[in-house]
Design a protein around this nucleic acid. Structure first.
Length: 418
RNA sequence: GGAGAGGUCGCAUAGUGGUCGAGUGCGGCGGUUUGCUAAACCGCUAUACGGUUGAAAAGCUGUAUCCAGGGUUCGAAUCCCUGCCUCUCCGCCA
C-alpha cells in the first residue's frame, strides 16, 4: 500500500498512476476522509489530554467523577468516529495500486515491450505434437485420471513424467542456491489472512484463492506469499541486505473467470509446482536487483536450451502491487505459443508497507525495505516447452543435458514397458 | 481434542486499580578517564498517528501502544470475557 502522507502530497501522481493502469478508481474520498480524520483526531486527542491530566491526580471527588463521566462519553463517541473513518480509509488504501516505474511503457498489453529474444527456434522436419499428445503417447501425463480424481484443470504425472517434474525442481533449486546465492526455504503451503494481505493478494483477489473455511487459511498461490511474510513485522539490519531466498512450493489457483482460455493440458492448471525467487533489498538498489533476478530466472531457460523472449510489461498490464515487471515467455512449438513461465517484479516498498517490513540504516533510521520476486521458474509450462521442443520423430523426448544427472543418467524419455 | 502455565521496551526481568510520565539489569549509542585495550563513571535509548515551528535538517507538543479484540471503572499493564501464539503434560496420529 502507499503511504497516506505520500498520497496527500502527490495527488496528481496517484491519479496519473491509476489512469495509466487503466483502472477505474475514484480517490477523492481518500482525501476527504483523510482531512476529516485529522480534524476529529485533534479534537479527541485534546479531550484525552484533559482526561489523563485529571486521572493522574488520584482519587477524585464526586464533582470530578461526574465531569469525567461526561468526558469519557464524549471521547468514546469521537473514538468510534475515528475508528469508522480509519476503517473506511484503510480499506480504500488497500485498493490503491503501486505507482508504475517511469521506465515502463504507458498503455495496455499492446504496449508491452519485447526487450530480449534468446535462443533459436527449432525447425521441425515433421509436424510437432502438442505436449498433451506427447505425454499421452509416452504415458507420462494422464489427464483423464486427474479429472477423475480432482476435476478439470489438474494433471497427473506418471513414471518418467513424475521424475522429470522432480528433476526440474531439484535442478532449479540447486542452480539458485549454488550459483546465484539464494538461500533455500521450504515454507508452509497454507497461510493465514494476514500473510495474504501482506503481499497484496487480499483483499482484491480473494475469489482466485483456495480457502479453508473452518480455519481461515489459504492455499498458497505462490511461494512469494509465505517467503515474503517470513519477515512481516521484522526490522532487518542494513548489513543483512540483500536477503535472497529461493523456495519450491506447489501453487494453487482457482483461475476463476478464465474458463476456456488456455485450459488445455498443462497450460493453466489449478495446481502447479514452482521455484520462486524472493529478495529483500535496500531501496536504492531495487531496480538493479530486479535485473539480476531476471537474469537468474533466464539462466534456467538458457541451461535448458529453451528459446524465450523477455517482455517488459506496460502500465496497464503489470500487477496491482508491482512497480515494474518483466515476463519471460518460452516457446512451445507444439501448441505454437509463447508461454509465460516467469514473472519478475519489483514491488518497491508497496509490500513492505503492507507487511510492515523495515530495516535499520547505518545511521539508525528505520525505513521500509523493497521486495522483489520472480518465478525461477514455473514447472508445468516448462514441462510443456521441454516436451514440445525436445520431441523426436519417433515419439521419444530427448532429456535436456542439465537434467540427466537428476534422472538416473537417462538421455531420453521413451515409453516404458509395463 | 483435553488439562495446566505463560505472553511487559532489542534481550532478561519488576510491577495485582490512581505517584506507571512503565522501574532495574544486560545490550546498543555518545561522552569522561586512558599509551592501547579492558574496567569504571556520566548521559541517551521504541514505534505509529496528529498538531506546531522551520527553507531543510531537526525541534517542541499531544495521543496511542505492556500479544490482539471486547468489557468493567471516574481511572486498567494490573480485574473480567473471547481469540491468537508459546511452553508442560495427556490423548490421537504420518
Amino acid at each position: 500500500m502507499l503511504d497516506i502522507k505520500f498520497i496527500r502530497e502527490n495527488p496528481d501522481m496517484i491519479r496519473a498512476s491509476i489512469k495509466n493502469r487503466n483502472i477505474k478508481l475514484d480517490i477523492q474520498e481518500v482525501f476527504d476522509l483523510d482531512s476529516e480524520r485529522r480534524k476529529v483526531l485533534v479534537e479527541v486527542e485534546s479531550l484525552k489530554a484533559e482526561k489523563n491530566a485529571i486521572s493522574k491526580k488520584g482519587k477524585p471527588d464526586q464533582d470530578i467523577i461526574d465531569k469525567m463521566k461526561a468526558l469519557s462519553q464524549k471521547i468514546a463517541d469521537l473514538d468510534s468516529k475515528v475508528e469508522e473513518i480509519d476503517k473506511k480509509l484503510g480499506n480504500l488504501l488497500l485498493y490503491i495500486p503501486n505507482i508504475p516505474h517511469n521506465s515502463i511503457p504507458i498503455g495496455g498489453p499492446e504496449n508491452n515491450k519485447e526487450v530480449k529474444v534468446w535462443g533459436k527456434v527449432r525447425e521441425f522436419d515433421f509436424k510437432p505434437k502438442t505436449h498433451i499428445e506427447i505425454g499421452e503417447d509416452l504415458d507420462i501425463l494422464d489427464f483423464p485420471r486427474s479429472s477423475k480424481i480432482s476435476g478439470s484443470g489438474f494433471c497427473l504425472f506418471k513414471g518418467l513424467g513424475a521424475l522429470l517434474e522432480r528433476a526440474l525442481i531439484n535442478f532449479m533449486l540447486d542452480l539458485h542456491t549454488t550459483k546465484h546465492g539464494y538461500k533455500e526455504i521450504f515454507p508452509p503451503f497454507l497461510v493465514n489472512r494476514a500473510s495474504m494481505t501482506g503481499t497484496g493478494q487480499l483483499p482484491k483477489l480473494e475469489e482466485d484463492m483456495y480457502r479453508l473455511k473452518d480455519d481461515d487459511l489459504f492455499l498458497v498461490p505462490t511461494a512469494e506469499v509465505p517467503v515474503t511474510n517470513m519477515h512481516r513485522d521484522d526490522v532487518l539490519d542494513e548489513s543483512d541486505l540483500p536477503i535472497c531466498y529461493t523456495a519450491y512450493t506447489a501453487c494453487f489457483r482457482r483461475e476463476a473467470g478464465s474458463y476456456g482460455k488456455d485450459t488445455k493440458g498443462l497450460m493453466r492448471v489449478h495446481q502447479f509446482d514452482k521455484v520462486e525467487l524472493v529478495k529483500f533489498v535496500k531501496p536504492e538498489t531495487s531496480f538493479n536487483e530486479l535485473e539480476k533476478l531476471l537474469n537468474n530466472a533466464e539462466t534456467v531457460l538458457q541451461k535448458l536450451s529453451l528459446p524465450y523472449r523477455v517482455v517488459m510489461l506496460s502500465t496497464g498490464d503489470i500487477s496491482f502491487a508491482a512497480s515494474k515487471c518483466y515476463d519471460i515467455e518460452a516457446w512451445a512449438p507444439g501448441i505454437g505459443k509463447n508461454l509465460e513461465v516467469s514473472s519478475c517484479s519489483n514491488f518497491t516498498d508497496f509490500q513492505a508497507r503492507r507487511a510492515n517490513i523495515k530495516y535499520r540504516t547505518k545511521d539508525r533510521k528505520l525505513e521500509h525495505i523493497h521486495t522483489l520476486n520472480g518465478s525461477g521458474i514455473a514447472m508445468a509450462r516448462t514441462v510443456v516447452c521441454i516436451l514440445e521442443n525436445y520431441q523426436q520423430k519417433d515419439g521419444s523426448v530427448i532429456i535436456p543435458e542439465v537434467l540427466r544427472s537428476y534422472m538416473g543418467g537417462r538421455e531420453k524419455i521413451v515409453k516404458e514397458q509395463k
